[in-house]
């Protein structure tokens, strides 16, 4: 593949990232930056958390639990469990790079860059791209989202008090709202059913097993949706 094609796929990824995901990440991380400052953390730790953990529920768990003084092991376990979703998300993304040696070489870096925004863009656009265009496209989307995360954290940490509260809180609301519509646009029946069941089950399970909500919801709702779709397929 020529360098020109690589370059072009990279910039298509950047443009796709700028269309919506960049702004979603920016809004969410403004909220996180403000929260990290209120918890007494330094800006370096806040940025390091956004770029290193790179998964908001895990970041929020870390900051909240550090602020109440829980033992380190409890903080790490809670933060890790809140981000357990990266396991199935990575499983779904990685096979899309099959046949590309460079992607295989960078597989752990690609997994580290993955976020919910990047996942939703790449699972939608990736299959429509030629195998060799997928890696530069992925880098384009990821780099723009990581930049948004970094800028958002800095704005939230340094300037959240300068913004009116209703704007800050609405920016935080933007990302979950966006994903409701992303999931409502799922193309396949099993994904739509899984998303619908997961959306109903998540808040219910949170009342019973708050720390295990994400994995238990995924396993239960995902498995039911998978077998239900198979069963419907056999009936018709």
């Amino acid at each position: 593949m020529s360098k020109e094609n690589n370059f072009s796929a990279f910039w298509i990824g950047v443009a796709e990232g700028l269309s919506m995901p960049f702004w979603m990440v920016l809004g969410s991380m403004i909220g996180f930056g403000s929260m990290a400052r209120d918890a007494g953390l330094s800006i370096e730790i806040a940025i390091g958390s956004s770029l290193g953990i790179w998964g908001l529920p895990g970041q929020v768990a870390m900051v909240e639990l550090m602020a109440v003084g829980l033992p380190v092991l409890s903080i790490v376990i809670a933060s890790s469990l809140a981000n357990m979703r990266f396991m199935p998300m990575t499983v779904v993304v990685m096979p899309l790079f099959k046949g590309n040696w460079s992607a295989y070489k960078y597989r752990y870096l690609l997994a580290q860059m993955l976020s919910i925004n990047i996942w939703s863009v790449f699972t939608r656009c990736g299959p429509q791209l030629a195998i060799e265009d997928r890696l530069p496209f992925y880098f384009g989307v990821s780099i723009i989202c990581l930049t948004g995360g970094c800028i958002g954290t800095i704005i939230g940490f340094t300037a959240a008090d300068l913004l009116p509260f209703y704007l800050t809180v609405s920016l935080i609301f933007l990302n979950p709202a966006y994903f409701v519509f992303v999931f409502s646009s799922a193309q396949t029946q099993n994904c739509l059913i899984a998303a619908g069941l997961g959306a109903c089950l998540g808040p219910l399970l949170y009342q019973v097993v708050p720390e295990w909500t994400v994995p238990v919801t995924g396993m239960l709702a995902g498995t039911v949706a998978f077998y239900f779709t198979k069963w419907v397929g056999k009936q018709s």
Binding site: A186, T188, A194, G198, G202, G218, G222
Partner: peptide, 12 residues
């Protein structure tokens, strides 16, 4: 894929 969708939707 179903598990990933369900996990993310539950979280959101």
């Amino acid at each position: 894929n179903c598990v990933a969708y369900a996990m993310l939707a539950g979280l959101i």
